[in-house]
Design a protein around this nucleic acid. Structure first.
Lengths: 135, 135
DNA sequence: CGACTTGCGTTACAATATAACGTAATCTAA
DNA sequence: TTAGATTACGTTATATTGTAACGCAAGTCG
């Protein structure tokens, strides 16, 4: 087992968890510059991609951004819905097995062989709804 | 009613329909250079955004690309699933009202107020499945 | 017609992402 | 242990995607 690069991955994950919301790769890059003054984009993208493979990080396609997985228990086989708050940037994952079954049913009728699901819902999270429109 | 720019929108829509698959904004730009040698990105993005507002074009978030809406009948209130073939680039929309209800149910439990749904499924379309793995 | 408004075209640049190359770290086998 | 193979890292450079801002042209309305 190689451990090269895992330090970088750990630092990237720490940054994302500390933020608790979606961050662009370049936001992560800036956060890492404190420790690594000469860090470059490919380093960050490689760490992010490795973390995505492991399931510790998800890519938010509709934001071109990344978020730490906060629910450690669920499996990461794409069986969840991402709720993205456009006010505060928080991202929650909700497991949705029935929805996936429903989707499979719809698609199988058309002969489409699904491989990857992107289910992202934009809106306002309960906290931001409670805070009112624009305090 | 202004008609300025509608020519451009019409040409963009023609390009997208002729392609019959997702295209990046810059692919559209290149296609338009034949008629408009000096065309620039904002012109294309403005036309694309106007067409998206009207519902004639959809943005494919997971590809950073755009596709002409091929089913003229359905309403465009986000109530459909996009099936994206990673082999040929074709994009199909399937209405999925039950799925949307299901999704609303899941999210309302968390207090999340949904405003926009991004439901994109990547895989292989029936034509490409029929063509075998790599002919 | 002349003043006002809208939004287009253009220039320039910002934000996101990756190709490619040399090299250092790790692994394998003798 | 070390030579050779392999992996994947850091770096440079560049590709790709998207937008801010400004001046002007086209349409609007008195």
């Amino acid at each position: 087992m190689t451990t090269r690069g895992e330090q970088m991955q750990a630092q990237v994950l720490t940054v994302l968890k500390r933020k608790g919301a979606a961050m662009s790769a370049y936001d992560v890059l800036d956060a890492l510059r404190a420790d690594h003054p000469k860090i470059a984009p490919p380093t960050v993208y490689r760490a992010l991609n490795a973390l995505i493979e492991k399931g510790g990080v998800h890519r938010v396609e509709s934001l071109n951004a990344f978020v730490a997985c906060n629910s450690d228990d669920h499996d990461h086989d794409h069986s969840s819905v991402m709720s993205i708050c456009d006010d505060c940037g928080s991202v929650e994952e909700s497991p949705a097995p029935e929805l996936m079954d429903n989707l499979s049913g719809i698609l199988s009728k058309t002969g489409f062989a699904a491989q990857r699901h992107v289910i992202e819902v934009h809106g306002t999270c309960s906290d931001c709804v409670a805070d009112g429109s624009k305090p």
